[in-house]
């Protein structure tokens, strides 16, 4: 009798766990299918493509080769990679330097005000990037708003060459990525216990020492996250370089774009994409090794 009960309980449990298994499979199916179809498969295709041979007239010959990767090491392309890193570096640096005080300010005002400020900060994201970049063209070109203004004031005699320079590219990039950089920094500054700053002051440190010894180290995860969120998309983002850089500067993103459109060299474009993805993965890996939290990146 006892055994019977135990058996029936066991059976019941098995039945239930089988049910749970089925339902969890059913629930996971859509996201699994989605991931395979739209993430795994395209990446696999990209990887496959990157080892193919370029045929005449933009066709793809299905012959295995390493040539596309070897091609990247040519000086002409390495210049592009170097240029990308330089622009991404300056963009990131400026974004952090501008974004940190802004984040600190938003974190310190009253809750109500900080809500309003956050919405204002996110506002540019609701406007199409094209519109924003065209506005920059209007502002920066030689007969544009900024130059006319400075000329009228007599500060300059000749219009400044602003558009189609690295300056314009970096300006546009900073504008695009500032909101993304401010948010993680804001969240880490806001989490900081103000008592810690008071404790530091109490123990004899002035505001500057307190900042470098307490505030900065404790908010560094937010800064790391901001660096990742700026640097990575910056390397691949081709719209800003295209519109504000003219032909003068090219980044990896532009190069890939051109392989798929103008040059019609899909295998090379695929190889470039794979390399770019590897660089990004490496950076995220370094970020997590330094104690970064993937959640802060919006993963």
């Amino acid at each position: 009798m006892k055994n019977n009960t135990a058996d029936s309980v066991k059976k019941h449990k098995e039945k239930r766990s089988a049910k749970a298994k089925i339902s969890s499979v059913v629930m996971c199916a859509p996201i699994t299918i989605w991931s395979v179809l739209f993430i795994l498969l395209p990446v696999a295709m990209l990887l496959f493509m990157s080892f193919m041979t370029k045929g005449p007239l933009g066709r793809v010959l299905y012959q295995f080769t390493f040539d596309n990767y070897a091609e990247i090491l040519k000086p002409v392309y390495l210049v592009v990679v170097k240029q990308s890193f330089i622009i991404a570096f300056w963009t990131t640096l400026l974004t952090i330097l501008l974004g940190y005080p802004l984040a600190a300010f938003i974190a310190r005002v009253k809750k109500k005000t900080s809500g309003v400020l956050t919405v204002l900060l996110m506002l540019p994201l609701w406007v199409s990037g094209l519109v924003i970049l065209y506005s920059f063209v209007v502002i920066l070109n030689s007969s544009g708003t900024l130059n006319s203004f400075l000329l009228a004031l007599g500060i300059i005699k000749e219009p400044l060459e602003l558009l189609y320079t690295n300056f314009a590219v970096i300006l546009g990039m900073v504008y695009m990525f500032l909101p993304f950089a401010v948010l993680p920094m804001y969240s880490s500054i806001e989490k900081l216990d103000p008592g810690l700053m008071e404790a530091s002051k109490d123990l004899g440190a002035g505001p500057v020492k307190t900042f470098f010894k307490v505030t900065l180290p404790l908010t560094s995860p937010g800064i790391f996250a901001a660096v990742i969120l700026t640097f990575i998309p910056c390397i691949g983002y081709y719209m800003v370089t295209d519109m504000l850089g003219g032909g003068t500067s090219m980044m990896v993103g532009n190069l890939i774009y051109r392989q798929y459109t103008i040059a019609r060299n899909w295998p090379f474009g695929a190889a470039l994409s794979i390399i770019l993805a590897m660089i990004i993965l490496l950076m995220v890996f370094i970020y997590t090794r330094f104690g970064g939290d993937l959640d802060d990146l919006g993963a």
Binding site: D193, G195, L196, E198, A199, S200, K201, D202, L203, G204, A205, G206, V214, P217, L218
Partner: peptide, 20 residues
Amino acid sequence: KEPYQRDVNTVFQNYALFPN
């Protein structure tokens, strides 16, 4: 005198120890 110039020290309510 600022807090860091006074000859007094405080033990804070939530300890306020530096976690780093």
